[in-house]
Structures are given as structure tokens and as C-alpha cells.
Write a protein that binds this DNA or RNA. Structure first.
Lengths: 170, 170
DNA sequence: CAGTTTACGTCAGCCTTGTTGACATTCCAA
DNA sequence: TTGGAATGTCAACAAGGCTGACGTAAACTG
């Protein structure tokens, strides 16, 4: 596994980008970048009594309005108890609305209220602003590569969720 | 801010990659990919009584052996109390060694013991394996773009830390 | 040399966010 | 009608952030 001699060539293609050093750079890039990625929303949320978990819930409810709790659970990858605690406060604070399903009354369909949409926009704007700057700095080809690698890094089920969200809302 | 009409062209260059939809895809890609990124080490650590915080400490001590507590603090971006809790257990368990500085005796220089290096290798191998697969799947050009965008996404001081680690150990 | 600053450790307490386990309710479907 | 699925809730707990306060030793500085 710990193969530092990956500077081989086969099939005519250089594999220099697969050295442990290259891989480690990618690992550290992910670590540092993710910090930046969450920094702006975190700052906004710190003032309110919300955290990153609330942001995630708000983001995906906005992204797929009417989604069920179970669906959201799968996307967020947390337990229903964890999610429920977050949803409870968001509903109590009037940011999220929970509507009993019409076809299946066990299900709860989640929607953002106007206040919820306002907060979503505020958080989203901050996060997008950073993304936009990064995209601009790196250029379109880099962005394409960025997405390719990230997608390849996901677990299979997360990748399905990602692609579904991406292609489901054109 | 929420400009959905970014499909403009100026200076002859398409800015289609800067639409809100494109940016949102990037945001979700980061979210889902980061989950995959941490999944393998998390699984390994779950069996022991360690968490992601221990992994981070071990990673950067391995990366910069002899680093001081203050230095590590800056890289990890946590409080000294938080880091201390983690370091204390790692030192107690014989994975990390803390040596009093020779020039400045206030400083503690951190090193991995053999056991620490073994765990680091185990965690690192798992994480690199995933990176390697992703890199292979996406190809060298995508990897270059991936790193460019991530670097552009970092806060200025994190970017400095990243570059320093990257270029300091060639 | 005296006083201040720096580096580090630690105690106490709080918060968010994750976990498991147990249990109730509602309702669909076989 | 009964089993299972979807949801919600209570309780208890742990990891890992945070702040504030305090102590010690070493280094720096006027």
C-alpha cells in the first residue's frame, strides 16, 4: 500500500500523479479546503443558535422541497434522532414546515418557510461567493477536473444521491 | 449575489461554469466527497477509542515531525484545550512522544513512536487507497484541476500552511 | 535584575452533534 | 387483522468543539 515508488510509466501514460506525495497533497488539500468551505456559513450560524447540522438540513430541504424525513436521513447520513433534534428546532422556529403526506400519511414532507428560504439564501450566498471566487481563479477546466475527482471519491450511494440531485433538477 | 443569469460571455470566455447551479453542484460535491474522504479512517478508528481528531493530530505530526504544539494548533485550527485532550491520550497510549525543546525549553516537540507510525500508516494507507482510485478514475488533468480549485477555496492562512507543507517536504 | 510575554498544561463547565436503545403511534399492505 | 414500515420521542452517553481561569517554567526586554 505505502508505495512511494509509484513513479512508473506503463501504457505510455505517466503515473507521477499517483505517488504517495501527490496523494498526500490531495488529502491535505481536502482538509484545508473543507475548512474554508464551511467557514462562511459557520460564521453566520454562530450568531444564531444554529450549527452546521442545521445548515445541511436547510440546504437539502431547499434543494428538494417536499422531501421526506427518511429521504433526508439517507442524504445526510445521520440517525433519525440526530436529524429530528435539528428539525424540531427548525420547525419550532418557523423555518421549516412539516406536512403530513397525502398519499402516505406516515410520511412528513419538508418545506422551507419564507423565513427558512431567507436564511438559506443568506448561507448559500456566502458559500457560493467563495466557490465563485475559487472557480474564477482556477478556470473552467480546473473546475471540471475538480468535480470529476470529487465524484470519484464518493461512496457509491453518496454518488448516486449526488448525481440524482445534479441531474434531477436541470 | 444569487445571480442565476451568470450564463454570460465576456472577454470571449464562457462563464457558464459560474452559474448558481454549477456552484451548487460544487458545494454538494464537496459535501458528499468529504464524507467518502473521511469514511475509511473513521471506520478504522471506531474500533479503537479514537476519533477524527486523533487522526488529524497523527497525520500532521507524521508530516512534520518535531513540530511544536503551537504550530500544530495553528494548522489544525482548534483550541489548545481541544488539542491537549487528544495529545494527552495519544501520549499516554504511547503513540506520540513529547520532547522538551533544546533551544527553547518551553516548547514541546512532537514525534510519532513506532506504534504511532504504524497506526499512521494504517490510516494513511486506507485514505490514500481511496484517493488513488479517484485519481486513476479521473486522470492527471482532472487531478491538477482538483487541486487548483481546492487551493483557491482555502482561507489565506490555511493556504499558506498547505503550500508550506507541500513545498517544504519535496 | 524585575517585569512581561510566551508556551504549555490543566481544571471546570458548556454546547453541538453524533451515537444506541427502548417504546409509542400511525398506517399501509399482505 | 396482523406484521412491518415510517415517524417521533425520551433517555443516556460520548466525542470534540468552545470559553474562562489559573499555574508553571522559560524566554525576552527594558
Amino acid at each position: 500500500m505505502s508505495d512511494s515508488r509509484a513513479a512508473q510509466v506503463y501504457g505510455g501514460e505517466s503515473l507521477l500523479f499517483l505517488t504517495d506525495e501527490q496523494l498526500r497533497q490531495g488529502i491535505e488539500a481536502m482538509f484545508f479546503a473543507y475548512r474554508g468551505f464551511t467557514a462562511d456559513p459557520d460564521r453566520i450560524l454562530a450568531d444564531m443558535s444554529y450549527g452546521r447540522a442545521h445548515h445541511r438540513a436547510i440546504h437539502f430541504i431547499n434543494r428538494a422541497p417536499g422531501t421526506t424525513v427518511n429521504n433526508l436521513l439517507a442524504i445526510l447520513g445521520v440517525t433519525k434522532q440526530s436529524l429530528n433534534r435539528v428539525l424540531r428546532t427548525l420547525i419550532a422556529d418557523g423555518l421549516v414546515e412539516s406536512r403530513v403526506g397525502k398519499l402516505d400519511k406516515r410520511e412528513r414532507h419538508l418545506h422551507l418557510t419564507e423565513a427558512g428560504q431567507a436564511l438559506e439564501a443568506q448561507l448559500s450566498d456566502a458559500q457560493r461567493a467563495r466557490m465563485r471566487t475559487a472557480y474564477k481563479e482556477a478556470g473552467p477546466e480546473a473546475v471540471a477536473g475538480f468535480k470529476q475527482v470529487l465524484e470519484a471519491m464518493m461512496d457509491a450511494d453518496m454518488r448516486r444521491a449526488y448525481v440524482k440531485l445534479r441531474d434531477g433538477t436541470p
